[in-house]
Design a protein around this nucleic acid. Structure first.
Lengths: 342, 342
DNA sequence: TTGTATGCGTTATCAC
DNA sequence: GTGATAACGCATACAA
């Protein structure tokens, strides 16, 4: 019923050779004759042999496993990053173990330890919002375990990072609105947060400056950037009676909240107010009107993170200098920001 | 720079005891004195000991790893299922390895083999659309490796399954439209597919029957159920000049396609045509109007799948009878189907 | 090109 | 309660 799994010893016995020879044949070792190799491969098939990676991992000291920690897996951005990681990893015969930190630092630490116990060969992390201590990551580096940060990164950890150019994204979004003729551009941001929002804000400021549009602090709304926050900010904005002809929200969710409130107040998008979000979440193409936004290329980010990991792995001997990979964002122009006749 | 990782032997040496004692202390073996246990735990901490799960796995013949195969990870439904699996698994000290089949049977087989080589203790699968051979899964069962199917299942594999009651979902959606006063209800489906669409269709038929509404075959549109397919079906529908007052699409994506085309033709939703989708994809609450749909509770499905796996694991000795877990869907009523004044 | 011997880190079995 | 020993399945240094 439950036949013992075949090992290299079983193959060896059948062929009257030793396990080491079998091992060599299976691993494409050059020091092996074509005939025995063929015989081994054939017998392996006959016996339905399945290599035990566990044993190999123990012996070699590497598991062919990559750990990846994200705040939550069921967000389009993160699951797409994982998809990218998986693509690259699988090609090189690595598997991916995923865990979620749920934005909680204790969970993050516990999950990291679990991954280490599973003897992953390296860890890819997007840091939780509330993570303010980084010893657990720095001790990883001391132990020589490859670590790559992506998207939510920090400079307090001396390791390779993969991010997009959020500054450029903010700049492109704002510049686009200016080109559409907008002059009073509201900005939704979250200044308390990780770098990403600050950078987008910086891009917004710079684009205004480059186009000689005076900056107006009262057009900047700070919030937690979820849908409901976008609604609230827009309501406040309307109540303030300030004039504005565009909103650049540094989050797609807040942008959708703004869209809802604007429509509820019979303000036409894009004619009266042009609207731009950030992230290119899948739903942005389904809104009415479809939302102009900035793509962060999550799959490509995952691929780059995986490649970064393998670079660290390969250069294990020499002194490795952490790399910062900066991906270029792309403005996805849709109807929410396209003024007629332009 | 790269200090050798501490093992139980190191701990043993420091305390002048043997590795077996250390192992027992670490594993809460009853045959150990409190004092030595404390000493071991203390020393483990001092030496920054991290258990090597690989070695334990090899010795024990179980890896504490669960493999999970989904068509694609970056779809809200699947990533949410994975989230549910992870929650349950981590609590029991299991890790989750994810892989994607990309709806390709060869990839599916290769990925399954990779998981087996990694010596996962079991596999959770949602079958690819084009998978029509199942030997690779059945051979798993013969080998005694726990296998659980979820959502996209088939009865050709004799193992535990977790699904939602798609029939009921279809029934609830249709019944709701009827209660809103709709009598000519179009249905978008995909009959060639796996069970799920057939079941939703069956629910549609039954609800019509129970409410004495004659079935009209020409109101049923078959397609691949993506957004573009929903658009095409709706265009055909309009061109056919048939009268209809509602559309029940067995996919949210096709429903959004329908929404777009209806709006483009100045057909008011829900006044002229009520619209219901299926899956409760995140974007359905962002459309205009928000889309009525059927929730499949993906996180709960993941939890149930994981629990099913552990049940098989626990009952390993006795003869195990495959269980079919059927989750209840829930109709999420939003404005796309709410006739005014009702 | 192949064989021999050893060990990766852990746990299970037996003995004491 | 603790110790000694073997074994899980594989890969590698060394010999031949």
């Amino acid at each position: 019923m439950k036949p013992k799994k075949a090992t290299i010893h079983d193959i060896a016995k059948e062929l009257n050779i030793t396990a080491s020879t079998v091992s060599r044949a299976l691993n494409n070792n050059p020091r092996i004759s074509e005939v025995t190799k063929k015989a081994v491969l054939g017998m392996a098939k006959d016996l339905n042999y399945q290599p035990n990676n566990l044993a190999a991992a123990l012996r070699k000291g590497k598991s062919q496993l990559i750990g990846i920690i994200v705040p939550t897996i069921n967000r389009s951005f993160f699951s797409s990053v994982i998809r990218g990681v998986e693509e690259v990893a699988n090609k090189l015969n690595y598997r991916v173990i995923v865990s979620q930190s749920n934005e909680d630092i204790d969970t993050e630490i516990a999950t990291l330890n679990a991954l280490l116990n599973a003897r992953v060969d390296g860890v890819l992390v997007s840091i939780g919002k509330n993570t303010n201590r980084f010893e657990h990551y720095n001790s990883l580096i001391e132990k020589g375990i490859p670590l790559v940060l992506f998207d939510r990164t920090t400079n307090e950890i001396g390791t390779s990072q993969v991010v997009i150019d959020d500054y450029l994204g903010g700049y492109l979004a704002t510049e686009h609105l200016i080109k559409q003729g907008c002059k009073k551009i509201v900005h939704f941001t979250n200044l308390k947060q990780v770098n990403i929002y600050k950078e987008r804000y910086r891009g917004y400021l710079e684009a205004l400056k480059d186009n000689n549009i005076p900056f107006n602090q009262s057009l900047v709304y700070e919030s937690n950037m979820q849908l409901v926050d976008g609604r609230k900010s827009t309501e406040k904005l309307l109540a303030s009676k300030q004039e504005f002809d565009a909103i650049f929200s540094a989050s797609d969710y807040a942008a959708v909240g703004a869209m809802q409130v604007l429509k509820e107040n019979d303000i036409n998008i894009p004619r009266d107010v042009a609207l731009v979000g950030f992230s290119n979440e899948p739903f942005t193409s389904f809104t009415d009107p479809p939302l102009t936004t900035v793509s962060q290329f999550p799959i490509e980010m995952g691929q780059a993170a995986a490649e970064s990991f393998f670079e660290i792995l390969d250069s294990k001997k020499k002194k490795f200098i952490p790399q910062k990979t900066v991906l270029q964002p792309e403005l996805i122009i849709r109807n929410s920001s396209l003024k007629e006749g332009r």
